[in-house]
Simulated scan of single mutants.
Amino acid sequence: MSVLQIAIEVVGWLAAALILASYVLLSLGRIEPRGYLYQWMNVIGASGFVLNSGYNGALPSAGLNIVWALMGVFTLWSVWRARRLPVES
């Protein structure tokens, strides 16, 4: 295995660990589903999966994770936007 192949595999395993950790923390009630931490963990993890899957030719997995990352980015944007708007009485 080349250094690049090892790096791609490490990225894939770290992505898997990050997404699994986000799910465990969410399931235990330690983080909120619309919280920044959960969403960033998923965006970064999905991005790692895109890199790993794309490199290894697993295009359905890469496509799914592109959508997963975009959903996370959209949620981050909508939460940020909702939190900066003043509350109307």
Rank of each mutant, 00 (worst) to 15 (best):
L76N: 07
W13K: 02
L59N: 10
A17P: 08
A7Q: 06
W40Y: 14
S78Q: 14
N52L: 07
L20V: 14
M41K: 02
Y23M: 06
W13S: 03
V24R: 06
V50F: 11
M41Y: 08
V50R: 08
L76E: 05
Y55H: 14
L18H: 00
I31H: 05
L37N: 07
E32I: 08
N65M: 09
R83T: 09
S78F: 09
G63D: 07
V67H: 11
M71A: 13
R83M: 06
Y55L: 08
R34W: 08
W13R: 01
G45C: 05
E32H: 14
R34K: 14
W80D: 03
A21F: 12
R34M: 10
R83F: 03
L18G: 01
L14E: 03
M1T: 10
V10Y: 04
R81H: 13
E32L: 05
S53A: 15
L18W: 00
I44S: 08
P60A: 06
T75M: 15
P86I: 03
I31M: 09
W40P: 00
Q5N: 15
S2W: 04
F74I: 14
V50L: 08
S22L: 03
I6P: 03
L25F: 15
Y38F: 15
G29H: 05
A16Y: 10
V10H: 01
L51R: 05
V11Y: 00
G45T: 01
A7W: 03
R84V: 04
S78I: 08
L26W: 06
A58D: 10
W13Q: 08
R30P: 03
R81L: 11
G57W: 12
F49H: 02
S22H: 01
A62S: 11
R84T: 06
R84E: 10
G12R: 00
A69D: 11
G57Q: 09
